[in-house]
Design a protein around this nucleic acid. Structure first.
Lengths: 339, 339
DNA sequence: TGTAATTACGAAAACGATTAAGATATAAAA
DNA sequence: TTTTATATCTTAATCGTTTTCGTAATTACA
């Protein structure tokens, strides 16, 4: 590897001058600056990130925490898109992305925070994780610039999708299609806040529209669990007054419901309408196309990356805020018009 | 941050002793070693990766190249699972994962190789990329330990799924179900080698089984392009002697075909059987469950990580080889039994 | 013309670790 | 007892940068 030393001898100047020339300091003459840069380029010079980090305490590297017990993070269409966007936005600004983990060394296990300090991440983005994990809390409460996605802590920035508005628009959409008996199989387990917000919005909107939601219309099933959502669906179908439309925790789970509906010889949407949540890509390619709330994963990822970089580079002037990203109703073919 | 210096004063020894104690060198007394380690732990010491990297030229960080023009990498179920597995395996061995990119700095754009050198990656894994990109070739031909996934270069290690065997078993499976008129819509564009291998295996197996494949049974459609596969399907359905079973480039594209088949009032698998490729997760949750070749993404990722780490840690004794990972036929409900 | 201000550069310390070589004390061998 | 070996720890150089401070040369100003 060619270092500043090599350039300095090639140019007949000191390494200090080389450094300052490359970093565009004011106290280097224009001529020297150009010469140094030219030689650097032609010798194929690139800085050594480790040396630079050691000296400056800046790595231009972001840690991304992306872990769930069941490995449903990376392999979750929604989060994969968020990460992809995150990655793109960070790279544009010259930052790299490294996964945070509780990595093992010779000595002992590192906590998430310790791992971050070890690697010297300039900032971290917490995407998909158990937000009650004490290690996550430790990280969030640290001094490292942090942005969370889809979860809000009181003292850190967050980027969240507008679950309230999303759910409201979905309910309104379905209502406008003439549905009055609407059931909701809500998610459980992970992301409690998200679940509650959606559920609250579901109830509130229903009430505003003058709908009464009987208790037996509300079921629970784990996110992305087709079996659980299938069982809940079966229960709903057995009711004397069965719903005309069923909401699901997410698109994936929705298919569990669709399967059960079809097994019963019923058709979607002619007999029963269904709506999902998330807007995973494949739902737009399978018939019947799912009517769902399409989250703006591109914005979620991008805004998170931009925010954390802003926190890093302008800590004073960047405010701690909660950025809300709106999704939109994707109109598929899974909701019948009853009017 | 607490450094070795801090520990050395706390213990009344030199930093060299601290370093050697923590790294378990032989020339440190047992008592001192214990004391240093204990103090280190209780002071919350963790090494500074930048300093360590600067001195040792080892970062314990792997670069992963994971990029495609259409962003179909991360968001592709198949590759997402590979990455997830890769990540897990690397972490087990104490390596972190950072994405490689052609990142921009103040000065000028970095090539993939330059980025790797800048970050000092100990090794790289090339997962999903245009393998004809000159920058990729530059990286592959460099001295950095490299493993490619699903593409083989002559002088680097690779982990590939057994497309030949996979396709053979799929054809045999379908043949055993009584199908004789089998069409194949093969992929195009990316991963030419993969496509050719599957196609060749398709022809060869058919021939071995005594099947004649008329030219009009072979169509092309881009991977994961439901529209293109739909069009190709429509063409196949118009043939005088239409196939009883259609092979698709991948599961995603398969749904494009299923849609068209259903539009025509035909049923899967009663009228037309379909088989996919990859074994994406959702295909096992939507009816009719897809019969497909389920790739062993866990092994693909894990073996790649283990191989590159082996290349890094035992360069002499690790042989340059091509690791073949076998998939398996996943028996769904999309192929009818004609016997 | 003498002094102050400005410009352009260099010397050297520092970041936090590793490691070769040297030093000291103790134990074993002669 | 002297020599040699062994065990244990330290000194100091080094990795590739950045940055403070100093200095010399040039220019501006009185």
């Amino acid at each position: 590897m060619v270092s500043m030393k090599d350039i300095s001898v090639a140019c007949g100047v000191s390494v200090a001058t080389v450094s300052k020339a490359l970093n565009d300091h004011a106290d280097i003459g224009a001529e020297t600056k150009n010469r140094v840069r030219q030689v650097a380029k032609q010798m194929g010079y690139f800085p050594n990130s480790a040396a630079k980090a050691l000296k400056t305490n800046r790595t231009h590297n972001l840690g991304v925490l992306f872990e769930e017990d069941d490995h449903s993070g990376l392999t979750h269409d929604y989060f994969a898109y968020v990460l992809d966007s995150l990655k793109g936005a960070a790279e544009e600004k010259g930052y790299d992305i490294t996964f945070i983990n509780g990595c093992r060394t010779r000595h002992n296990r590192m906590s998430y925070l310790e791992h971050c300090r070890y690697r010297g991440f300039d900032g971290v983005i917490i995407v998909c994780v158990n937000f009650h994990d004490p290690e996550v809390l430790e990280l969030v409460n640290s001094s490292i610039p942090t942005v969370t996605i889809d979860h809000v802590f009181n003292n850190v920035c967050s980027v969240v999708s507008d679950n309230v508005k999303g759910m409201r628009e979905l309910v309104q959409y379905v209502y406008n299609k003439g549905h009055r008996r609407i059931a909701y199989i809500h998610g459980v387990n992970s992301s409690v806040a998200v679940t509650q917000r959606r559920l609250a919005s579901f109830y509130k909107t229903a009430e505003e529209l003058g709908l009464k939601i009987p208790d037996e219309y509300i079921k629970a099933a784990a996110y992305r669990d087709t079996k659980a959502s299938g069982i809940a669906t079966a229960e709903l179908l057995e009711l004397r007054e069965r719903p005309t439309c069923i909401f699901y925790p997410d698109d994936f789970a929705c298919y569990g419901g669709i399967n059960v509906i079809k097994e019963r010889g019923l058709s979607v949407p002619d007999d029963i309408s269904v709506v999902g949540f998330d807007g995973i890509r494949i739902a737009r390619h399978i018939e019947p196309k799912l009517t769902t709330l399409k989250q703006d994963t591109t914005q979620l990822g991008r805004r998170a990356a931009e925010k954390v970089i802003s926190l890093i580079e302008h800590p004073k002037t960047t405010l701690i805020e909660q950025i809300v990203v709106e999704g939109e109703v994707y109109e598929g073919k899974s909701v019948a018009c009853l009017k």
